[in-house]
Structures are given as structure tokens and as C-alpha cells.
Design a binder for these strands. Structure first.
Length: 286
DNA sequence: TGATATGTTATCTT
DNA sequence: CAAGATAACATATC
């Protein structure tokens, strides 16, 4: 699924095309994707216009014309949000059946706008969800997320506090959204590689110097990935149905069994850590 | 057939 | 109670 850079790419794209668009009708083809009742969802959205599109961690937050009301969407593993209409053409023919034609069998929620354009919420595995909530509820949900890794609040000292006393693996702590918001399996592996740390090591055994290195690695990999509009491994596409370009810049994720690009010596290992697979170079990551 | 998958969270265990 | 580990969600692909 989309991690922070992918969700941020979608956010920017959608804000550009959706701001000011008025929802004419919501088509709910699979009710389970909606939280808080299908009827209420449709009723709260009908006639509303979209304002700013924000992001917290991997959660998208759409401000609605009726202040105090927000549309929240989480894409989880395989969710896609694709906008089609007006001059925008939905991508096709690049081998992604899910965006070749819209709607398709995975288009579970469709937002139709008054100008004839539409936003498709596709999700093969149906883990994602959408909800309309009031301001208090939105704030409550958002407050459960940890520090934004690209914000000024995320400092080496803050990372040190997060890791302190944690006996779990580095990977499972970095994946914990209530501590740092937005990292997923790909970028945890990549940031660990940049820092020369094994994702499988204990989180509380990092020197100050290594913490600083890890902090820099996290920020660098996220910024570079955003610049390349995210990483497409299987399912991720941006709001126009296009793949992200960061996949070819990955150093360890998905490279198990291949030679390390940095030391040209180690063979990338893939093991379990924190319930997920973790890839690293046994030669450059201590 | 069985393992694996970019995420989250409820539940079990320690 | 807290921290950590694991199962579960639904589906596709290798």
C-alpha cells in the first residue's frame, strides 16, 4: 500500500483537481468500505464541496464545505484513489487492469461531482475505509498519530526518545504509527539501509551517532520518494492512475538475493522482523 | 498447494 | 497494566 510519500503524492494531485468541486452523488457499491453507516455517509456528502486536502500519516483528510465535517480515507494495502473527468484522462494500457477502465470490479466507492468528473476509490483487498466525521472526531483520530517525520518536530532527539527503552526490533518500532506517522515496510528498510543499521536489531541499542544517521535516512528517503511520486511495487498508482518512479531507486526492499548496490559484496538478506519481512545487506548494515 | 504481499488493529502471550 | 508478538481482514500472484 501507499506509505507517506505515495499518500502525499495523491494528496497534492487531488487537492489540485478537487478543490471547489461539488459532490453531486456518492455511489456506494460496497458498503463495508464505509464506516459509520452507509446512509449517513451519503447524506453527509451530498451537495458538499471539497476544500483543502490534508494528510496525517497515511490518512487523507478532505475538508468539506460544511465546516466541522471531514471526509477521511485510508487506503491500507491496495487502495487507490483515481480522479477521472474533464480534461484528465485516466491512464490505461500500462498493464494495470485496475485503472484501464473505470469503474472496475474494485471500484467500491465513487464520488460523482457536479461537473461530470468523478473520484474512484478502488481497493482489491477491501482493507481501506472512508468515513465522514465531525471536527472533534477528526481531531481525536489525528491525535492518535505520532510525529510527522518531515515536520520540524521530528528531530534526532525526538527519535531517540521514541527508541529509548524499546526491546522490540527497530523495524517494529519505526512501523508504529502512534510513534512516527507514515512509515511503512519499504521506507523503514530503505532508511535503515541508509543508516547502516539492521532493521532486525533491538531499537534501544543505537548510539547517538546512529540515531542521528537514522533520523537523516528517514527524512532523506521520504523526501526523495516524494520527489519521484512514490514507489509502485504492485498496486500503487497516483491520482491520475500512474505509477511512482521510486521503485528503481530502492536499495534493499524487494532485492532479496541480489548483490548490494553499495558495497557490491553483500547479498541482500530477507528475514522476518516485527511480523513483516525485512531486507538488508548483511555486509553494510551492522 | 502454500507462501507472500506496500497496513492496521484486535487479541493473545509474556 | 504494559510491551511485544501474532492473527485476522480479502484477494491476487508466484
Amino acid at each position: 500500500m501507499p506509505e507517506l510519500p505515495e499518500v502525499e503524492t495523491i494528496r497534492r494531485d487531488l487537492q489540485r483537481v478537487l478543490r471547489g468541486k461539488k459532490i453531486a452523488r456518492v455511489q456506494l457499491r460496497k458498503k463495508k468500505l464505509v464506516r459509520g453507516g452507509a446512509r449517513a455517509f451519503e447524506r453527509r456528502l451530498a451537495g458538499q464541496s471539497i476544500g483543502a486536502v490534508k494528510r496525517r500519516g497515511k490518512l487523507l483528510i478532505f475538508s468539506l464545505g460544511d465546516k466541522k465535517q471531514y471526509l477521511l480515507m485510508h487506503l491500507k494495502m491496495t487502495g487507490q484513489l483515481i480522479y477521472a473527468g474533464g480534461q484528465e484522462t485516466v491512464a490505461g494500457g500500462h498493464g494495470y487492469p485496475s485503472v484501464d477502465k473505470l469503474p472496475n470490479k474494485y471500484s467500491h466507492v465513487i464520488f460523482h461531482f457536479t461537473d461530470g468528473s468523478a473520484l474512484y476509490f478502488n481497493d482489491m483487498r477491501q482493507f481501506g475505509h472512508a468515513a465522514v466525521v465531525d471536527e472533534d472526531e477528526m481531531k481525536r483520530i489525528v491525535s492518535g498519530y505520532g510525529v510527522e517525520p518531515l515536520s520540524r518536530l521530528f528531530t534526532p532527539a525526538r527519535l531517540g526518545e521514541i527508541l529509548r527503552g524499546r526491546q522490540a526490533t527497530l523495524k517494529s518500532v519505526l512501523l508504529d504509527q502512534s510513534k512516527i506517522a507514515g512509515l511503512g515496510s519499504i521506507y523503514v528498510d530503505e532508511a535503515s539501509f541508509l543508516a547502516g543499521l539492521r532493521p532486525t536489531q533491538r531499537a534501544d541499542r543505537l548510539s547517538k551517532k546512529k540515531i542521528k544517521k537514522l533520523h537523516g535516512g528517514i527524512r532523506q528517503v521520504l523526501q526523495r520518494a516524494i520527489k519521484h511520486r512514490g514507489t509502485t511495487f504492485n498496486d500503487y498508482v497516483d491520482a491520475r492512475g500512474r505509477r511512482g518512479g521510486f521503485a528503481r531507486l530502492l536499495k534493499v526492499y524487494g532485492r532479496g538475493g541480489q548483490r548490494c548496490l553499495r558495497c557490491k559484496k553483500g547479498i541482500i538478506e530477507r528475514v522476518k522482523a516485527g511480523g513483516r519481512s525485512a531486507s538488508f545487506c548483511p555486509n553494510c548494515q551492522v
